[in-house]
Design a protein around this nucleic acid. Structure first.
Length: 276
DNA sequence: ATGCCTACTACAAGTAGA
């Protein structure tokens, strides 16, 4: 616990599926100004690397690394601290060219004159996979298997690790507003949930689930059918922390405010604060 | 309910998202 008078640096790491970075430039810059995260992991940027609106974010002090694709998918990392890209594709399938994965090392500033602390971060966008049983569903299963294999390798490294992103998995029935409607949906499917549990068992903590076990902590509300005002949501965006990252955890949460603003993404940011 | 909303792409009452 923090003693009175002790200065503790708040290092915020967040993830956000923005549903087009070009359409969301203003919403995201405002959020960065208000929340000042050290690192923001982005998904569904929906634009090529050349067309990414860099200056708007660089002006706020963020460096940007992105894996882009025209019109679909797209992930990025925005960081105020030095960031080095380690991987631009999820290993395990050389023919998979979809822009769904970026991994790298951040040099996080620490208190006083201590050396910066290295943190490995991954911004990932798991395939949607609907409808169940389709080609797209098989791709999702395969993608999650590759993620589990790779994450096991990353856990052998010494630095703390955070997997953040749109997992397109509602881990339990408490993570969907009406589970009776979506039993066979690719976001709730037993086979998909089993893969997600396997990932956790490999050594990760879903920090929001651990701190806010009650139902209703959603991160996504469909644009259709007035889902937001009715709170018809899903919890599908997650921050998974390795044991070494968990040891640094001070706080975490879901910031629902951006869903109620003008021209919102259908997802909201999920964040965690580390104590360094 | 083959709908509903939003973004993208490029003119198709198209696709994808979840």
């Amino acid at each position: 616990m923090q003693r009175p008078g002790t200065i503790v640096r708040r290092t915020r790491i967040a993830t956000w599926n923005v549903n087009s970075i070009k359409a969301r430039t203003r919403v995201v810059t405002r959020w960065l100004e208000a929340e000042t995260p050290e690192v923001l992991l982005l998904q569904e940027t929906k634009c090529s690397e050349e067309l990414f609106p860099r200056p708007e974010f660089e002006d706020l002090g963020y460096r940007i690394e992105t894996v882009g694709q025209k019109g679909y998918n797209g992930v990025a990392v925005m960081s105020r601290a030095a960031f080095t890209v380690e991987r631009r594709r999820l290993p395990g399938h050389p023919g998979d060219d979809e822009a769904r994965y970026i991994e790298g090392l951040v040099e996080l500033p620490t208190e006083g004159r201590r050396k910066p602390r290295e943190l490995r971060v991954v911004s990932l966008y798991v395939p949607n996979g609907n409808p169940a049983g389709s080609e797209s569903f098989l791709y999702k299963i395969d993608w999650l298997k590759r993620l589990i294999d790779h994450a096991r390798q990353l856990l052998k490294e010494t630095e703390p690790l955070i997997l953040g992103g749109d997992f397109n998995v509602a881990p339990t029935d408490a993570d969907v507003y009406d589970p009776s409607l979506f039993g066979n949906d690719a976001l709730c499917h037993p086979e998909i949930r089993a893969r997600f549990r396997e990932l956790l068992t490999a050594g990760f903590t879903d920090v929001v689930a651990a701190h806010y076990p009650a139902p209703g902590n959603y991160t996504f509300w469909d644009y259709q059918d007035r889902a937001w005002p009715k709170n018809h949501g899903w919890r599908i965006d997650h921050l998974l922390l390795s044991p070494r990252a968990l040891a640094l955890l001070a706080d975490c949460g879901i910031d629902k405010k951006p869903r109620g603003m003008q021209q919102p993404s259908d997802h909201v940011p999920v964040w965690c604060d580390l104590r360094l």
